[in-house]
Design a protein around this nucleic acid. Sequence first.
DNA 1: CCATCGTGAGTAGCATGTTACTCGTAAAAC
DNA 2: GTTTTACGAGTAACATGCTACTCACGATGG
Lengths: 255, 255
Amino acid sequence: MAVALGRYEREQGISVGNAVKLSDFVLKSLRTAIVSGELEQGSLHSIYQLADRFQVSRTPVREAVLRLADTGMVTIERNRGIRVQGLSANEIRRVFEMRLLLEVPAASHAAAVVTPTLIAELDGYLLAMREAVDKSDSDTFFSNDHALHDRILSTFENPRLNEYIHTLRDTTRNMGVSTTHHSRTLLAVGLEHEPIVAEIRAGNPQGAAAAMADHLVETGSLLIAQTAGLDADFASSAWAASVLAQLPLPRVASL
Amino acid sequence: MAVALGRYEREQGISVGNAVKLSDFVLKSLRTAIVSGELEQGSLHSIYQLADRFQVSRTPVREAVLRLADTGMVTIERNRGIRVQGLSANEIRRVFEMRLLLEVPAASHAAAVVTPTLIAELDGYLLAMREAVDKSDSDTFFSNDHALHDRILSTFENPRLNEYIHTLRDTTRNMGVSTTHHSRTLLAVGLEHEPIVAEIRAGNPQGAAAAMADHLVETGSLLIAQTAGLDADFASSAWAASVLAQLPLPRVASL
DNA sequence: CCATCGTGAGTAGCATGTTACTCGTAAAAC
DNA sequence: GTTTTACGAGTAACATGCTACTCACGATGG
């Protein structure tokens, strides 16, 4: 018990009222293992097995698995095991459709209620992202990427919205990391944020919406292409058309 | 009820692969208890206590509580207990803002891809709702209400979207039941669905979007007024303005 | 009277025990 | 050889044991 607990976190802290829960640790580890392909898609595992892998008891593993099942990354087959669903191209499409529905209006709203403070914050994130690209520091890059999107969403003052987008992002996190085109992709994605902030600064809701839509479609297309390979259904950016058509965009120019 | 439900399934069951999980039962019961006010807002409870109430062990209760904490209905205070957060007026506002962001484009999309089959299904739900109103059968009414919204959403062919709306609806479920104005409210809400279907039938995306927006704003306002009482901040329908402004509506006529 | 400290009841979180179930496998029946 | 049946390994779900922690409350010291 205490022995098993000692493995991972006792070092980092004098403990005290440490809010870090073992189930959270397992949740994060499991998601990473799935997204990175360490746990093969379609494979079947058991709570016992995973508990052994992470050197914890079955309880926190079970709790983490239940939460992953809620998001659809695994399915639980009673008395059989845990099936890893991974992320199909279709699943990625769904995630980015949701993000389009929510983040495009958010960008529009941010432009409508823009303040100097908001711009200063967004510029700060952009700057940090540029520096991270220069240093090929993907961790810093992604965390500031996240912060920028999060700040735009928060103009709705709806924590529930921010939280949901956070889980959607988590689902596809780390997918682009350590590919051969890594740094190039990183740079390109980073550049796409500039027009979003520029349009918000200008107080142009429709422009901000269009820029955000472009960014999300481009990012989603990259991840889908990477997952689906040459799957013809997703070769173009047509996957987002049905959603884009319902959004308040001036005209979907770049698509 | 808790007593009778306690040893609840051993009897009914040749069982077989019964998919009913105890934790799901507890989750549903807890949510009902919270929304109905049985578990007072702001009150503190413990896993032991709740396990005793539902006549099950602590494990399924804990799992249910963790999932409720994910949706924000309770907060977990370590070594202290479970704090019931209930639903403030602000929280209801947030739920309906999310629904506006997602369901208004969905109505628009449904109108854009309308088929005779879709119309037939929606008409079926409408008919069932009218009959349910006549018989004051709120269960049937709400289930068809849900089915209608669900069918409109499903035109996006994105199960993740349907599922999320489902959880949002669950959060505010049962709130309007057994009030003094019950049947009148039921009737009014039922009538609001007719224009939505009419606009979808006509293949008019903007009209469908506007009708859906009207419906959601009206429903949300009712629940907010009921919760907030005379709270001035929510007296009008202004709560939705910031969201509505970012949606693809022809003009927000009725507000 | 007021502040400090100790203590014990109560709790969430983690570990472990228990049970009914699923399904592959192989023996048995044909 | 083919089908049927019996069995056991392995599992999720549930029950229970255990521990470090929190905090109200009362005793003690000022």
